[in-house]
Design a binder for these strands. Sequence first.
DNA 1: GATGAATGAGTATTCATTCAT
DNA 2: GATGAATGAATACTCATTCAT
Lengths: 198, 198, 198, 198
Amino acid sequence: MVRYKKSEEKRKQILYAAFHSLSERGYDAVTLQTIADHAEVSKGVVHYYFENKEAVLVELLEWLTAKISAKERAAVAEQHTATGKLTAYISSAFPGPDQNRSFYRVYLDFLARASRIPAYREINKRFYDSCASISTEIIRLGQQEGIFAKGLFPDTTAPVIRAIIDGCLIQWLMSDKDELHGLYKDSCYGAIMKVLSV
Amino acid sequence: MVRYKKSEEKRKQILYAAFHSLSERGYDAVTLQTIADHAEVSKGVVHYYFENKEAVLVELLEWLTAKISAKERAAVAEQHTATGKLTAYISSAFPGPDQNRSFYRVYLDFLARASRIPAYREINKRFYDSCASISTEIIRLGQQEGIFAKGLFPDTTAPVIRAIIDGCLIQWLMSDKDELHGLYKDSCYGAIMKVLSV
Amino acid sequence: MVRYKKSEEKRKQILYAAFHSLSERGYDAVTLQTIADHAEVSKGVVHYYFENKEAVLVELLEWLTAKISAKERAAVAEQHTATGKLTAYISSAFPGPDQNRSFYRVYLDFLARASRIPAYREINKRFYDSCASISTEIIRLGQQEGIFAKGLFPDTTAPVIRAIIDGCLIQWLMSDKDELHGLYKDSCYGAIMKVLSV
Amino acid sequence: MVRYKKSEEKRKQILYAAFHSLSERGYDAVTLQTIADHAEVSKGVVHYYFENKEAVLVELLEWLTAKISAKERAAVAEQHTATGKLTAYISSAFPGPDQNRSFYRVYLDFLARASRIPAYREINKRFYDSCASISTEIIRLGQQEGIFAKGLFPDTTAPVIRAIIDGCLIQWLMSDKDELHGLYKDSCYGAIMKVLSV
DNA sequence: GATGAATGAGTATTCATTCAT
DNA sequence: GATGAATGAATACTCATTCAT
């Protein structure tokens, strides 16, 4: 349906504008006007496509985490060894200073609210599950290859992988130094390898 | 001077109230009225003791991170082996579901804003430095004891320790399950030990 | 464009309401609520049309002085002798107790702040310039007609004309007696004629 | 009584502080704290010596206008010819840029409110009466000396004298140019002489 | 007498949401 | 479908005034 398609495009356009607004100004400072301006539509349009402000934000978080998950899955799928997949996963999680900054700024804004807003927590849980399933796949493969410790329980180890990635990227973001991005990426890779290796 | 002491007590009272307000309702929802209510003082009192709302929050973050740092330092100082110190450090960082929840909710609220608000970033940097110095001390001791890898560079490894702690506690907080607290603590300890061990 | 026109009308409506609010209650007591009430709109509308309260007041002063200037210019333009123009000017400046009271109350409120608020001072300067150009025209014509002293320098005499008008109207306003309006008008006219005459 | 005397001194000190506060910041911006700070006393003291803020301001206007009146009377009393007295009066009213600015800023602040606040209007009326009696004395003397027009009615002419003085000083104040002070003083003197002369 | 801590009423301003056009 | 004018609830902040010490 043309109409539906058009609607979907406009929704995406608004979500994309919301992402950039959040990234630039932060959750607190974003108003519907900001989003409308970024999307180059009128304020009324946002309300036409979304129930309310919260709905825009919920959908943004859904869209954002789904996009990241898909990107990471795709990167991992291209590799066929445990090391290759792990490297691909981490590279995908550390695309570069600009992308990491804009994503993590927004992501932290949601994370900070997720412990109080069930909708955010639920979406984040799905994101964590996706991350965990990627890690689990890598761990199992590494164990088959004999390069990862047999004794590791994928279920409990997988979350730690994401914890290290998030922890390192938060540390990097707080450093406010683009030039340290590579260092944190390497540290992250090194730490995960130590956690997993025989 | 009695007057000064009284002032300081009232300031602490307000900061304490601010902490509980933030923890309960979240940064966004906290108003000066909320804080005043928690402190059982009138709205004007908050303005009497603090320049403005931002000043309350800045001082709260300062007080909070200083308190955590002091607690962790004290716990580590009581132990005299690398393993003992590391265990004490992690135990201190994982005091329990209630304390971790209230602290990390508030801490995440600040962290999410720290990338845009220099005052918060600066305070967090001091907190990270304190954490790093604790980790560095533990790493050096462990290397002397021969239980940690000689090749580790304390400067680059120390931040990873905190990254793992923060990453794990965020994962736990997002799980919304008190009963997993012990599991995440163990995972965290295990991961850090693997990162450090020979 | 209809939209623009509608906007302009509403702005005028708000300025008009602001004038009446100021006139009734005085600068200090005027709140945006007062203005909104007078304009029979909601409080938000005032902020929709004006950046902030100061902007309303600045525009009010601009509008008010421009209106008075235009009225005086028009009155003077209708006459063709120096005496006729002077009489018209003064009559225009002394329209009657009600109009003089409402205007001078508001004008004095602005004047009292003009020495500290550059925006007000600037607008008043333009008003004084307009008054001076009217007086200058009258003086020159009177000198040509031979009824005003040749030795007068229009540049230095013109401000004195307005000084006498303002001074007399302030004296009248402070008397709080409507019935003295005519007397002050006559005194003003007499004084100015003496200042100008051969 | 020593106590009474001390009280009176403190009251004067507060009034003097209020004058400087008003002159520096303007009526709107003056708080009791400002006044207390200027007087180097605590805020409570102001309330101890004055019923409320309004009382301070009323007494300030009374004190201020009385002081100006006394100064002008004294200056005029020293001279014994109409021209001498007039010159003395105007010189007394135009002491210099700094004094004129500080007094007229404060005076205009009160004048702007006098049309609504009866207490201020009443005090100003007494000030005007004092000014009128000075002018009346000068006019009568000049008429006796034969240098002022016999036909002048002192009652109606006297207010015009003050109107010209106030009008000229307001024009000067609005010009924001200290160097024009002498010019306005001369213009004022010239205008008054023309109004009075035969 | 003097202090300054405490109060709370009052105000400008912001912004999500509604709705007439 | 789209617009943006209008609304009003919510909130930080100011300051005169009170009062316990």
